[in-house]
Design a protein around this nucleic acid. Structure first.
Lengths: 267, 267
DNA sequence: GCATGTGAATGCATTCACAGCG
DNA sequence: CGCTGTGAATGCATTCACATGC
C-alpha cells in the first residue's frame, strides 16, 4: 500500500473523519482572512460560503472538534482560528525538506504558503553536484549525500519529493530510513512505504485528465442536445487539423526519452 | 458553489462514479508502463499492485467501463490503454492555457506530463508586460490583454491558473467569459464559477496541513505509549529552541505584505 | 428568535465473496 | 481451474430537519 492513509483503526482517541480533516485547512484560511479584517464573529452560513462548502457540512465538521460556537450567534473567529490550528498541529514548527530542486522544487521553495502556518523549509536537496551551494529562495542547495544528516540534525519528519519519477522511490526510502514519516509526493509514481508512513500525492497530469473526462462529457451532452458552442467547435476543428491521424489512438504514450525535463517527469 | 463538481444529476448516460474517474489516470499510467515493457496481458491483482489500489476496487472500476477482461486470463494491456484513454477523452487534443508565469507557472510549462497524453500548452499568459515575448519552455509569454483572443482562436476549454491568490478570481472570470469550461486552480482561493464550469484545485499548503495533522497524532500516540522516537525528540527540541514563545499561537497568520512572491501566494 | 449541534435518513464508495465463463 | 465481473453487505460522508440553548 501507499495510499496516504494510516491503516490501523486509529487508536480510538478522537476520531475526526478524514474528509473533515481535509476541510479544516479550508476553514482556517477563510477564518484567517476574516481575522485580518477584524471580523469578530461569523455564522456557519457565512463561513461556509467563504470556504465554498455548505453550512450543514461545516457545522458537522466543527461538531467533531467540540462545541465552539454560540447558538443564535455564531463562531468567534479568533477562537476558532486557534482551535483549528491546534487541531491541525500548526501551533508547532514543522521543518520540511524539499528533495529535487528543478523547476518545481524551486517553485515550492519560493512558495509563500510554506513559510507561513508553521512550516519551515529546513533544507533543499538535489542530486546534481553542480547545484550544491547555489541558493534558491535564499537557501543554499545541499547535495543528496547530506540527506540523512540533515534530517536527523533538524528533526525533520515531513519530506517533499519533487524529483523525476525515476528517482522518487529511492529518495523516499532514504527519507523514511532517516526518520521521515510524512511525504508529499509530486513525482508521478506510486510510492511504497512501510506502515506508519503517510504519503500524499499531488499529480498535475491526473488532475488534467479528470478535467478532460468532464470536458468530453460536456461536449457529448451538448452535441446530443444539438447545441453548438463556438469554442468547442473551434477546438475540435483545430485539433483535427493539427493531428494527422484520424482517431488518434497512438498519440498516447510517446514522448521522447526521459531524463530531459528538469524536476518533473513525463506521465 | 465552486466545488469542482457538475451538480446536475448528470444526464443519465453512463454514470461512471467520480471516484472511479479519479483512478482511471492511475491505471492508465501503470498500463502505459507495462505497454512500454511490451507486457501483453495483466491480471487485476498485478495491475492493482502497480497502481497502488486493491484488486476488487480495480475490477469494479473496470466493470463500469464494460467487460474488457478475459476470465481466467486477465486484461489485454494495449486494449485497456486504448479504452481508458478514450474514456478519459485523451484520444483528442486538449489545448490548455497557463495563466501566471511565475515560478510555478514556469514549472508547469516545463512539465513533461502536460505535453504527453493529449494535452498541449497553447499559450502562456502573464500580467507583467516585462514578461511579454520572453520564452518559457520554448513558448513566448503573452500579455493578459490577449487572453480572450487566444482562447477563442485556439478553442481552449481548459485553463490553468497559477497566479497570486488576489488575481485568481478575476482571471477565472475572464477565462470563463471567453469560453473556458474547466479550470485547474493552483492559487489558494475558492473560485466561484457559474454552473457547468468545473474547477479542480491543487493546494500545496492544504496538503501539508493534512500531513501535519497526522504527524501530530502519531507523535501523540507514541508519547502516550511511552515510546521515544529520536527524530521526533530532535524536532521538538529544535522547534522549542527556535521558537521564542511557549505555545506559539500567534505564529499563525503573519507573513509580511503580499505581492512579493512571484507566482504563488501566501496561504 | 435564531443559529448551533446532532440524531436519523440518504447516498456513495469500498469490500466481500462467489457465480460465471474462458 | 483461475480470474473476471458483480450482487449483496458494510462502512463513510453528506444532507436533512429539528430539538436545544443562548
Amino acid at each position: 500500500m501507499a495510499t496516504g492513509r494510516t491503516h490501523r483503526p486509529a487508536t480510538r482517541s478522537r476520531g475526526i473523519p478524514e474528509a473533515t480533516v481535509a476541510r479544516l485547512p479550508l476553514y482556517l484560511r477563510a477564518l484567517t482572512a476574516l481575522s485580518e479584517r477584524s471580523v469578530p464573529t461569523v455564522s456557519s452560513e457565512e463561513l461556509a460560503a467563504a470556504a465554498g462548502v455548505n453550512s450543514a457540512k461545516l457545522r458537522k465538521d466543527f461538531s467533531y472538534l467540540g462545541s465552539y460556537g454560540t447558538r443564535g450567534v455564531g463562531y468567534d473567529v479568533e477562537y476558532l482560528v486557534y482551535q483549528i490550528s491546534r487541531e491541525l498541529g500548526l501551533t508547532q514548527d514543522w521543518p520540511v525538506v524539499i528533495v529535487g530542486i528543478g523547476n518545481l522544487g524551486a517553485a515550492l521553495a519560493n512558495y509563500g504558503g510554506f513559510a507561513s502556518r508553521g512550516f519551515r523549509v529546513a533544507a533543499l536537496i538535489d542530486a546534481d553536484p553542480a547545484m550544491a551551494g547555489k541558493p534558491v529562495a535564499g537557501i543554499p542547495v545541499q547535495h543528496t549525500d547530506e540527506l540523512e544528516k540533515i534530517i536527523q540534525d533538524e528533526g525533520v519528519s515531513i519530506g517533499v519529493i519533487a524529483t523525476p519519477a525515476g528517482a522518487a522511490q529511492q529518495v523516499c526510502e532514504r527519507l523514511v530510513a532517516a526518520g521521515v514519516t510524512s511525504i508529499l509526493n509530486f513525482a508521478p509514481t506510486v510510492l511504497s512505504v512501510p506502515d506508519g508512513v503517510d504519503v500524499r500525492k499531488v499529480d498535475l497530469s491526473i488532475e488534467l485528465q479528470i478535467l478532460a473526462f468532464h470536458e468530453q462529457r460536456k461536449a457529448g451532452e451538448l452535441a446530443a442536445a444539438g447545441t453548438v458552442v463556438p469554442a468547442v467547435a473551434a477546438r475540435q476543428e483545430s485539433a483535427a487539423a493539427r493531428r494527422g491521424t484520424a482517431a488518434g489512438q497512438e498519440s498516447v504514450a510517446d514522448q521522447g526519452p526521459d531524463g530531459d525535463v528538469p524536476a518533473v517527469m513525463p506521465t
